[in-house]
């Protein structure tokens, strides 16, 4: 129970951030011709940002099933790496059916916050998933029904909540380790290249993140291998 509560608390900032992101998703989905309940069902069953955005675009025309599958695969392949990464921190009881059930909630942010823990029990992970899931589905519901009710200046401010959280995860650890700082800087450098070099700009954001993250992490593993298994040096 202690673990569950701890997870619940850790999930609050994610839930807040999701509320605003999924609010925007709800507005967008309806503007593309989906019904409000369709947008909500998509969020309830899928729980991913980039993948859902791509999906509602594809859904505007019929019979693009192969394209749907292909785009989801490329955008979401990063989750496979995260799942393997987090499996290394899963506690001894967190196996089998628990992994099949809770693996559903492996979002970028839940993964990132879980990764900050020394060990991840199934209770902690369950608690961690609650607020983000509520935030994601509620935000979609509100966005798809209410549309643009919040003043733009408030929406604007909420849009950076998720990124603020990312910064809070990466910065303290990068401050402690020049190796990690180098690896992170490399990832950001490649990401900038994809954003600003015209020939690379056409690559979808899901694939870009994959390329940046894998290249930089490979570089880190080659040049700055981590000796012990405590996870931080």
């Amino acid at each position: 129970m202690k673990d569950f509560k701890k997870g619940l608390r850790l999930g609050v900032p994610i839930g807040l951030g999701y509320l605003s992101v999924s609010f925007a998703f709800g507005i967008l989905a309806v503007s593309k011709g989906l019904l409000w309940w369709q947008a909500v069902i998509i969020s309830m069953t899928t729980v991913t940002s980039a993948g859902q955005l791509a999906a509602v675009d594809i859904m505007t025309a019929p019979f693009r099933y192969a394209e749907m599958l292909l785009s989801q695969f490329t955008i979401n392949i990063r989750y496979s790496f995260m799942s393997v990464s987090l499996s290394q921190k899963a506690s001894a009881e967190f196996t089998g059916i628990k992994r099949w059930l809770l693996g559903f909630f492996m979002t970028d942010e839940i993964f990132a916050v879980a990764s900050t823990q020394k060990e991840v029990s199934s209770k902690l992970f369950s608690g961690l998933a609650v607020m983000p899931y509520l935030g994601w589905t509620t935000g979609t519901l509100l966005g798809s029904i209410l549309g643009n009710v919040l003043p733009q200046i408030v929406m604007n401010a909420l849009n950076v909540a998720i990124y603020g959280m990312f910064i809070a995860i990466v910065v303290p650890d990068a401050k402690k380790s020049i190796k990690l700082l180098t690896v992170v800087a490399l990832s950001i450098g490649i990401s900038f290249a994809f954003y600003y070099i015209p020939a690379l700009k056409a690559v979808s954001s899901g694939i870009t993140v994959c390329i940046c993250a894998i290249t930089a992490a490979l570089f880190g593993a080659l040049i700055f291998p981590i000796k012990e298994d405590n996870g931080d040096e």
Partner: peptide, 8 residues
């Protein structure tokens, strides 16, 4: 390194 590089 993966979590950090993904977030960055």
């Amino acid at each position: 390194y993966i979590p950090y590089t993904v977030l960055a």
